[in-house]
Amino acid sequence: MRINIIAAVAENNAIGKENKLLYWLPNDLKRFKALTTGHTIVMGRKTFESLPKGALPNRRNVVVSRTVAELPGCDCYPSVEAALQSCSPEEDIYIIGGESIYRQTLPLADRLCLTEIADTPEGADAFFPEYDGWKETVREDHDTDEKHHYRYSFVDYEKKN
């Protein structure tokens, strides 16, 4: 089983505000879809509730919740451990948030697929954990354009041995 964490992270590690993403970056959304389609995505209940149309298509949606046992189009588990145990050994798993799920899975992850955004937003209330001790393996820098109001980079990291 390969555990990937995918997130869009500001310079101060901010990832959200009031259960919403901080940034609308079409290329980030395309990358997210390309990487996660056909795989299992694992998220917390609040992240699931933030999805505009519910369960994401063409993926196995796994939700970790201590309070909800059933959600349409999802497999629900009471803990991260139970959610990961439900996955097969050959599966590529993508952890998609939120803050608590990222904190719990960072020590277990094999790879980080981050969109690092050149901005420090005001009022964020959800943050990605520190990820020192990871080795950058791929970086693709992007400038601003008519659809992207911030510079950003797609950066992959793997655990340092």
Rank of each mutant, 00 (worst) to 15 (best):
N12T: 12
T137Y: 05
N27T: 00
E140K: 06
V80C: 06
E90Q: 14
I3Q: 03
R2A: 00
D110G: 11
I5K: 02
N4Q: 14
Y131R: 14
R59F: 10
I96C: 05
P107I: 10
M1I: 12
G73K: 07
K160N: 13
E136G: 02
K30L: 09
A82W: 07
G38A: 12
V42D: 01
T105K: 04
G97P: 06
S50C: 10
Y157E: 01
P89C: 02
D92L: 08
L35I: 03
F154S: 12
Y152V: 02
L22F: 04
A10P: 15
N58R: 10
P78E: 00
A34P: 00
C113G: 00
G38L: 10
N61H: 11
T36K: 06
A69Q: 12
T115N: 05
G44I: 02
M1G: 10
P26V: 06
D119H: 09
S65W: 07
S100R: 03
L35P: 06
T37D: 03
S50R: 08
D125H: 04
N19D: 15
D145R: 08
E81S: 13
H149G: 06
I93C: 03
H148S: 10
A82V: 05
G133P: 09
T47I: 07
K53N: 15
D143C: 06
Y157W: 14
S86V: 11
S153R: 04
E99R: 11
T144P: 01
L22T: 02
L112W: 04
G54Y: 13
E122M: 12
F154V: 08
R66H: 13
H148T: 14
D143Y: 07
N19E: 10
A118R: 15
E91D: 14
L21P: 13
S79D: 09
D119Y: 00
I96R: 03
L71W: 09
R45V: 04
L22H: 08
T115W: 12
R60D: 04
G16M: 05
